[in-house]
Protein backbone atom coordinates (compact mmCIF):
# COMPACT_ATOMS: atom_id res chain seq x y z
CA UNK A 1 0.00 0.00 0.00
CA UNK A 2 2.80 2.37 0.89
CA UNK A 3 4.61 1.66 -2.36
CA UNK A 4 1.50 2.28 -4.42
CA UNK A 5 0.87 5.54 -2.59
CA UNK A 6 4.40 6.77 -3.15
CA UNK A 7 4.33 5.83 -6.81
CA UNK A 8 1.03 7.56 -7.21
CA UNK A 9 2.31 10.70 -5.51
CA UNK A 10 5.42 10.81 -7.65
CA UNK A 11 3.46 10.22 -10.81
CA UNK A 12 0.96 12.93 -9.91
CA UNK A 13 3.78 15.46 -9.71
CA UNK A 14 5.06 14.58 -13.16
CA UNK A 15 7.57 17.44 -12.98
CA UNK A 16 6.79 21.12 -13.00
CA UNK A 17 5.00 22.76 -15.88
CA UNK A 18 6.26 25.91 -17.62
CA UNK A 19 3.52 27.83 -15.80
CA UNK A 20 4.95 26.77 -12.44
CA UNK A 21 8.29 28.33 -13.36
CA UNK A 22 6.57 31.52 -14.47
CA UNK A 23 4.82 31.60 -11.10
CA UNK A 24 8.25 31.46 -9.43
CA UNK A 25 8.99 34.84 -11.02
CA UNK A 26 6.20 36.54 -9.01
CA UNK A 27 4.55 38.12 -12.09
CA UNK A 28 2.44 40.58 -10.08
CA UNK A 29 5.47 42.01 -8.27
CA UNK A 30 7.31 42.02 -11.58
CA UNK A 31 4.67 44.20 -13.23
CA UNK A 32 5.26 47.08 -10.79
CA UNK A 33 9.02 46.68 -11.14
CA UNK A 34 8.73 46.81 -14.94
CA UNK A 35 6.57 49.90 -14.72
CA UNK A 36 8.93 51.83 -12.43
CA UNK A 37 11.96 50.65 -14.43
CA UNK A 38 10.32 51.93 -17.59
CA UNK A 39 9.65 55.22 -15.80
CA UNK A 40 13.38 55.56 -15.12
CA UNK A 41 14.10 55.07 -18.83
CA UNK A 42 11.45 57.56 -19.95
CA UNK A 43 12.33 60.24 -17.41
CA UNK A 44 16.11 60.15 -17.85
CA UNK A 45 17.72 62.87 -19.96
CA UNK A 46 19.54 61.71 -23.08
CA UNK A 47 18.80 59.17 -25.76
CA UNK A 48 18.62 55.41 -25.97
CA UNK A 49 17.61 53.27 -28.93
CA UNK A 50 14.03 52.08 -28.28
CA UNK A 51 15.07 48.45 -28.75
CA UNK A 52 17.86 48.78 -26.19
CA UNK A 53 15.39 50.49 -23.85
CA UNK A 54 13.11 47.47 -24.24
CA UNK A 55 16.05 45.15 -23.54
CA UNK A 56 16.87 47.17 -20.40
CA UNK A 57 13.30 46.84 -19.13
CA UNK A 58 13.32 43.12 -20.01
CA UNK A 59 16.53 42.64 -18.00
CA UNK A 60 15.04 44.52 -15.04
CA UNK A 61 11.96 42.29 -15.22
CA UNK A 62 13.95 39.06 -15.51
CA UNK A 63 16.34 40.11 -12.73
CA UNK A 64 13.41 40.93 -10.43
CA UNK A 65 11.72 37.64 -11.27
CA UNK A 66 14.96 35.71 -10.70
CA UNK A 67 15.44 37.20 -7.26
CA UNK A 68 11.80 36.31 -6.54
CA UNK A 69 12.53 32.68 -7.47
CA UNK A 70 15.56 32.58 -5.16
CA UNK A 71 13.43 34.18 -2.44
CA UNK A 72 10.84 31.40 -2.85
CA UNK A 73 13.60 28.80 -2.62
CA UNK A 74 14.95 30.25 0.63
CA UNK A 75 11.55 30.95 2.20
CA UNK A 76 9.92 27.63 1.28
CA UNK A 77 9.63 26.63 4.96
CA UNK A 78 7.70 29.74 6.02
CA UNK A 79 5.76 29.87 2.74
CA UNK A 80 4.36 26.43 3.59
CA UNK A 81 2.76 27.67 6.83
CA UNK A 82 1.35 30.95 5.51
CA UNK A 83 -2.10 30.88 3.90
CA UNK A 84 -1.12 33.52 1.33
CA UNK A 85 1.90 31.55 0.11
CA UNK A 86 1.09 27.88 0.81
CA UNK A 87 0.07 27.23 -2.80
CA UNK A 88 3.29 28.59 -4.29
CA UNK A 89 5.11 26.09 -6.56
CA UNK A 90 7.69 24.90 -3.99
CA UNK A 91 5.57 24.41 -0.85
CA UNK A 92 2.88 22.73 -2.93
CA UNK A 93 5.47 20.29 -4.31
CA UNK A 94 5.13 21.25 -7.97
CA UNK A 95 8.72 22.50 -8.25
CA UNK A 96 11.75 21.02 -6.51
CA UNK A 97 13.68 23.54 -4.35
CA UNK A 98 16.92 22.87 -6.25
CA UNK A 99 15.15 23.50 -9.56
CA UNK A 100 13.89 26.87 -8.31
CA UNK A 101 17.35 27.85 -7.06
CA UNK A 102 19.00 26.88 -10.35
CA UNK A 103 16.33 28.71 -12.31
CA UNK A 104 16.77 31.86 -10.20
CA UNK A 105 20.57 31.89 -10.39
CA UNK A 106 20.57 31.25 -14.14
CA UNK A 107 18.13 34.07 -14.83
CA UNK A 108 20.01 36.42 -12.47
CA UNK A 109 23.29 35.89 -14.31
CA UNK A 110 21.53 36.11 -17.67
CA UNK A 111 19.80 39.41 -16.86
CA UNK A 112 22.96 41.08 -15.56
CA UNK A 113 25.18 39.90 -18.44
CA UNK A 114 22.67 40.89 -21.12
CA UNK A 115 22.15 44.29 -19.47
CA UNK A 116 25.90 44.85 -19.45
CA UNK A 117 26.49 43.71 -23.03
CA UNK A 118 23.44 45.34 -24.60
CA UNK A 119 22.97 48.52 -22.56
CA UNK A 120 25.81 49.51 -20.22
CA UNK A 121 27.69 48.13 -17.24
CA UNK A 122 26.52 50.84 -14.83
CA UNK A 123 22.95 49.64 -15.25
CA UNK A 124 24.16 46.02 -15.05
CA UNK A 125 26.01 46.74 -11.79
CA UNK A 126 22.90 48.34 -10.30
CA UNK A 127 20.82 45.35 -11.39
CA UNK A 128 23.32 42.95 -9.78
CA UNK A 129 23.24 45.08 -6.63
CA UNK A 130 19.44 44.94 -6.60
CA UNK A 131 19.33 41.16 -6.96
CA UNK A 132 22.06 40.70 -4.34
CA UNK A 133 20.36 43.12 -1.95
CA UNK A 134 17.00 41.36 -2.26
CA UNK A 135 18.45 37.87 -1.86
CA UNK A 136 21.22 38.33 0.69
CA UNK A 137 20.27 41.45 2.65
CA UNK A 138 16.46 41.21 2.69
CA UNK A 139 15.63 37.52 2.28
CA UNK A 140 18.52 35.84 4.08
CA UNK A 141 19.53 38.46 6.65
CA UNK A 142 16.77 40.88 7.59
CA UNK A 143 13.44 39.19 6.93
CA UNK A 144 13.55 36.75 9.84
CA UNK A 145 15.58 38.91 12.22
CA UNK A 146 14.15 42.40 12.50
CA UNK A 147 10.83 44.24 12.18
CA UNK A 148 12.74 46.76 10.08
CA UNK A 149 13.03 44.04 7.39
CA UNK A 150 10.88 45.72 4.79
CA UNK A 151 12.12 49.21 5.64
CA UNK A 152 15.72 48.38 4.71
CA UNK A 153 14.84 45.56 2.33
CA UNK A 154 12.49 47.91 0.52
CA UNK A 155 15.56 49.38 -1.12
CA UNK A 156 15.62 46.37 -3.44
CA UNK A 157 12.21 47.30 -4.83
CA UNK A 158 13.23 50.94 -5.10
CA UNK A 159 16.21 50.38 -7.41
CA UNK A 160 14.38 49.72 -10.74
CA UNK A 161 13.86 53.39 -11.72
CA UNK A 162 17.55 54.02 -10.94
CA UNK A 163 18.48 51.10 -13.19
CA UNK A 164 16.25 52.43 -15.97
CA UNK A 165 17.79 55.86 -15.52
CA UNK A 166 21.33 54.44 -15.60
CA UNK A 167 20.45 52.50 -18.76
CA UNK A 168 20.01 55.86 -20.53
CA UNK A 169 22.62 58.04 -18.81
CA UNK A 170 25.17 55.47 -17.63
CA UNK A 171 25.22 57.14 -14.21
CA UNK A 172 23.41 57.69 -10.93
CA UNK A 173 22.07 61.24 -10.54
CA UNK A 174 20.19 63.25 -7.91
CA UNK A 175 16.91 62.90 -9.79
CA UNK A 176 17.22 59.11 -9.99
CA UNK A 177 17.98 58.99 -6.26
CA UNK A 178 14.72 60.91 -5.72
CA UNK A 179 12.82 58.25 -7.67
CA UNK A 180 14.52 55.64 -5.49
CA UNK A 181 13.52 57.51 -2.32
CA UNK A 182 9.93 57.78 -3.50
CA UNK A 183 9.55 53.99 -3.66
CA UNK A 184 11.76 53.41 -0.62
CA UNK A 185 9.52 55.57 1.61
CA UNK A 186 6.34 54.21 0.04
CA UNK A 187 7.27 50.60 0.86
CA UNK A 188 6.77 50.57 4.68
CA UNK A 189 3.18 51.88 4.74
CA UNK A 190 2.36 49.66 1.75
CA UNK A 191 3.70 46.45 3.31
CA UNK A 192 2.58 47.19 6.84
CA UNK A 193 -0.96 47.74 5.57
CA UNK A 194 -0.76 44.20 4.18
CA UNK A 195 0.85 42.90 7.39
CA UNK A 196 -1.97 44.40 9.49
CA UNK A 197 -4.61 42.23 7.88
CA UNK A 198 -2.26 39.25 7.42
CA UNK A 199 -0.97 39.47 10.98
CA UNK A 200 -1.89 35.90 11.91
CA UNK A 201 -0.05 34.54 8.86
CA UNK A 202 3.20 36.27 9.80
CA UNK A 203 2.80 35.32 13.47
CA UNK A 204 2.35 31.64 12.55
CA UNK A 205 5.42 31.75 10.31
CA UNK A 206 7.51 33.53 12.94
CA UNK A 207 8.33 36.44 10.65
CA UNK A 208 8.94 39.53 12.83
CA UNK A 209 6.81 41.97 10.87
CA UNK A 210 6.22 45.28 12.64
CA UNK A 211 2.60 44.53 13.73
CA UNK A 212 3.77 41.20 15.19
CA UNK A 213 6.69 42.68 17.15
CA UNK A 214 5.72 46.27 18.00
CA UNK A 215 1.96 45.87 17.97
CA UNK A 216 -0.71 47.31 15.70
CA UNK A 217 -0.87 50.75 17.31
CA UNK A 218 2.86 51.44 16.96
CA UNK A 219 2.80 50.16 13.37
CA UNK A 220 -0.10 52.41 12.44
CA UNK A 221 1.69 55.46 13.91
CA UNK A 222 4.79 54.66 11.88
CA UNK A 223 2.69 54.21 8.74
CA UNK A 224 1.29 57.70 9.24
CA UNK A 225 4.80 59.08 9.78
CA UNK A 226 6.01 57.54 6.51
CA UNK A 227 3.08 58.92 4.53
CA UNK A 228 3.83 62.41 5.94
CA UNK A 229 7.53 62.15 5.02
CA UNK A 230 6.46 60.92 1.59
CA UNK A 231 4.49 64.12 0.89
CA UNK A 232 7.51 66.41 0.18
CA UNK A 233 9.59 63.59 -1.33
CA UNK A 234 6.83 62.73 -3.82
CA UNK A 235 6.57 66.42 -4.78
CA UNK A 236 10.34 66.83 -5.22
CA UNK A 237 10.58 65.51 -8.83
CA UNK A 238 8.81 68.72 -9.90
CA UNK A 239 11.71 70.75 -8.49
CA UNK A 240 14.58 68.83 -10.08
CA UNK A 241 13.34 68.98 -13.66
CA UNK A 242 11.90 65.51 -14.18
CA UNK A 243 8.25 66.45 -13.64
CA UNK A 244 6.09 69.53 -14.04
CA UNK A 245 3.17 71.34 -12.44
CA UNK A 246 0.59 68.70 -13.38
CA UNK A 247 2.61 66.08 -11.53
CA UNK A 248 3.05 68.41 -8.57
CA UNK A 249 -0.72 68.88 -8.26
CA UNK A 250 -1.41 65.15 -8.63
CA UNK A 251 1.33 64.24 -6.13
CA UNK A 252 -0.10 66.69 -3.59
CA UNK A 253 -3.66 65.39 -3.92
CA UNK A 254 -2.66 61.71 -3.91
CA UNK A 255 -0.25 62.32 -1.03
CA UNK A 256 -2.98 63.90 1.09
CA UNK A 257 -5.28 60.98 0.24
CA UNK A 258 -2.54 58.55 1.30
CA UNK A 259 -2.15 60.45 4.59
CA UNK A 260 -5.94 60.27 4.97
CA UNK A 261 -5.79 56.49 4.51
CA UNK A 262 -3.12 56.26 7.23
CA UNK A 263 -5.23 58.37 9.60
CA UNK A 264 -8.25 56.13 9.00
CA UNK A 265 -6.09 53.06 9.65
CA UNK A 266 -4.83 54.64 12.88
CA UNK A 267 -8.37 55.25 14.12
CA UNK A 268 -9.77 51.92 12.95
CA UNK A 269 -10.52 48.91 15.11
CA UNK A 270 -10.99 46.49 12.20
CA UNK A 271 -9.02 45.47 9.08
CA UNK A 272 -11.07 47.24 6.42
CA UNK A 273 -9.14 50.56 6.32
CA UNK A 274 -5.83 48.65 6.16
CA UNK A 275 -7.10 46.63 3.20
CA UNK A 276 -8.24 49.83 1.48
CA UNK A 277 -4.90 51.50 2.20
CA UNK A 278 -3.02 48.54 0.73
CA UNK A 279 -5.06 48.80 -2.47
CA UNK A 280 -4.72 52.57 -2.60
CA UNK A 281 -0.95 52.41 -2.06
CA UNK A 282 -0.54 50.45 -5.29
CA UNK A 283 -2.73 52.90 -7.18
CA UNK A 284 -0.83 55.80 -5.59
CA UNK A 285 2.57 54.67 -6.83
CA UNK A 286 1.23 53.67 -10.23
CA UNK A 287 -0.44 57.07 -10.75
CA UNK A 288 2.60 59.06 -9.61
CA UNK A 289 4.88 57.35 -12.12
CA UNK A 290 2.20 57.34 -14.83
CA UNK A 291 1.67 61.11 -14.52
CA UNK A 292 5.42 61.74 -14.42
CA UNK A 293 5.86 59.76 -17.63
CA UNK A 294 2.79 61.24 -19.31
CA UNK A 295 3.98 64.76 -18.59
CA UNK A 296 7.44 63.98 -19.88
CA UNK A 297 6.11 62.35 -23.04
CA UNK A 298 3.63 65.18 -23.62
CA UNK A 299 6.06 68.02 -23.10
CA UNK A 300 9.27 66.34 -24.26
CA UNK A 301 12.80 66.41 -22.96
CA UNK A 302 13.07 62.72 -22.16
CA UNK A 303 15.01 59.81 -23.56
CA UNK A 304 12.77 59.53 -26.61
CA UNK A 305 13.63 62.93 -28.04
Amino acid sequence: MTDVTNDLTLDRMGGASAGDFIELLKPRVMSLVVFTGLAGVVLAPGHIHPFLAAVAVLCIAVGAGASGAINMWYDRDIDAVMTRTAKRPIPSGRVEPAEALGFGITLSVFSVVVMGLAVNWAAAALLALTIGFYVFVYTMWLKRRTPQNIVIGGAAGAFPPMIGWAAVTGSVDTASILLFLLIFLWTPPHFWALALFRNSDYTRAGVPMMPVVAGERATKRQMLAYTLILLPVAAAPSFVGIAGPVYLAVAAVLGLMFVGCAVRVLRAVDDKPAKKMFGFSILYLFLLFAVMMAERLAFGGGAWW
Binding site: D7, L8, D11, R12, M13, P91, S92, G93, R94
Partner: peptide
Protein backbone atom coordinates in the same frame (compact mmCIF):
# COMPACT_ATOMS: atom_id res chain seq x y z
CA UNK B 1 -2.19 17.05 -2.95
CA UNK B 2 -1.74 20.83 -2.80
CA UNK B 3 -0.57 21.14 -6.36
CA UNK B 4 -3.71 22.68 -7.79
CA UNK B 5 -3.02 20.73 -10.98
CA UNK B 6 -5.93 19.07 -12.78
CA UNK B 7 -6.65 15.85 -10.99
CA UNK B 8 -6.47 13.14 -13.61
CA UNK B 9 -7.27 10.43 -11.10
CA UNK B 10 -10.27 12.12 -9.52
CA UNK B 11 -12.45 9.27 -10.72
CA UNK B 12 -9.78 6.62 -10.49
CA UNK B 13 -10.37 5.53 -6.93
CA UNK B 14 -11.64 2.18 -8.13
CA UNK B 15 -9.51 1.94 -11.25
CA UNK B 16 -6.87 -0.78 -11.56
CA UNK B 17 -3.30 0.29 -10.77
CA UNK B 18 -2.29 -0.23 -14.40
CA UNK B 19 -4.88 2.29 -15.59
CA UNK B 20 -3.73 4.80 -12.95
CA UNK B 21 -0.12 4.42 -14.06
CA UNK B 22 -1.05 4.79 -17.73
CA UNK B 23 -2.92 8.04 -17.11
CA UNK B 24 -0.21 9.40 -14.87
CA UNK B 25 2.42 8.61 -17.49
CA UNK B 26 0.37 10.43 -20.10
CA UNK B 27 0.11 13.47 -17.84
CA UNK B 28 3.82 13.37 -17.16
Amino acid sequence: DLSGTPSVDANLADAPPEEIRRRQAAMR
